[in-house]
């Protein structure tokens, strides 16, 4: 399998008001192409922090992170932006759709930043993505005219715009009802199985976690388990109240 990401002794310390807060420490992880992976852990265990590091949205305070065999710890903010644009797709709990642009334009924006496709190709691709997410009749709507679930689907289409190596999602269904959540996870799974798209997803949704190939559990900023789904759930189940 192709190694797409490698973390060695990664640590993250945040400093607030002169005090150092260690948030992540001694994280060693390797991810492979096509993985369908969940990150779980209690609130405050450092899941989001880890996800931002994986997506080069933030820098570690120690250790090295290699994305696609390139060490990103020393890269300039400009190169990191380019790397995120080309290789990473983010989906967050909140949709972060830009209000000045239509649904279609929001999906096109990362493609404009990349500057590789012609305008016509960009339009086609954005329309295709929105279509498969069931939004073909809402493409020219402005965010103010769309529901929360629809906006989250636009955000997913945007994350997939540049055919990223890796999709990172932080509680992507946190604001959605169970029907919409199911829709999102089904779509992720379909992309993973049909196209080998890699996913790393932070979530509390147990039915989704059950469906994952790999589950990484964090506690107090450390990886406490990294295992195939069945095994992991059993371990967790033992501890759950």
């Amino acid at each position: 399998m192709d190694k797409i990401m490698e973390l060695q002794d990664v640590g993250k310390v945040m400093t607030t008001g002169g005090t150092n807060f260690p948030i992540l420490s001694q994280v060693n992880l390797t991810f492979y192409k096509g993985e369908y992976c969940a990150i779980v852990g209690n609130s405050g265990s450092g899941k989001s922090t880890l996800l931002y590091l994986l997506g080069a949205l933030d820098r570690p305070t120690s250790g090295t992170i290699k994305i696609d065999n390139v060490d990103v710890s020393q890269m300039s903010s400009q190169s990191l932006a380019k790397l995120r644009n080309e290789k990473i797709g983010f989906v967050f709990q909140f949709h972060y759709i830009l209000p000045e642009f239509t649904a279609l334009e929001n999906v096109i924006l990362p493609m404009i930043v990349a500057g590789t496709l012609s305008e016509k190709k960009r339009q086609e691709r954005a329309a295709m993505l929105l279509g498969t997410l069931g939004l073909s009749d809402r493409m020219d709507y402005y965010p103010a005219q769309l529901s929360g679930g629809q906006l989250q689907r636009v955000a997913i289409a945007r994350a997939l715009a540049n055919q990223p190596l890796l999709v990172l999602a932080d509680e992507p269904t946190g604001n959605l009802d169970s029907r919409n959540s199911e829709l999102v996870f089904d779509y992720f799974r379909k992309l993973n199985e049909e196209f080998g798209q890699t996913f790393i997803i932070v979530t509390h949704n147990t039915s989704f976690v059950k469906d994952c190939d790999r589950i990484i559990t964090l506690a107090d900023g450390r990886v406490v388990s990294d295992a195939a789904a069945g095994l992991c759930l059993r371990e967790r189940g033992d501890k759950m109240p």
Binding site: L57, S77, A81, E86, Y96, P99, P110, V113, R158
Partner: peptide, 16 residues
């Protein structure tokens, strides 16, 4: 701030 953050997330550099 949020819009600027997401733009950075999908690849707009701080310089841009």
């Amino acid at each position: 701030r949020r819009d600027i953050a997401i733009m950075q997330a999908f690849g707009v550099s701080p310089q841009s």
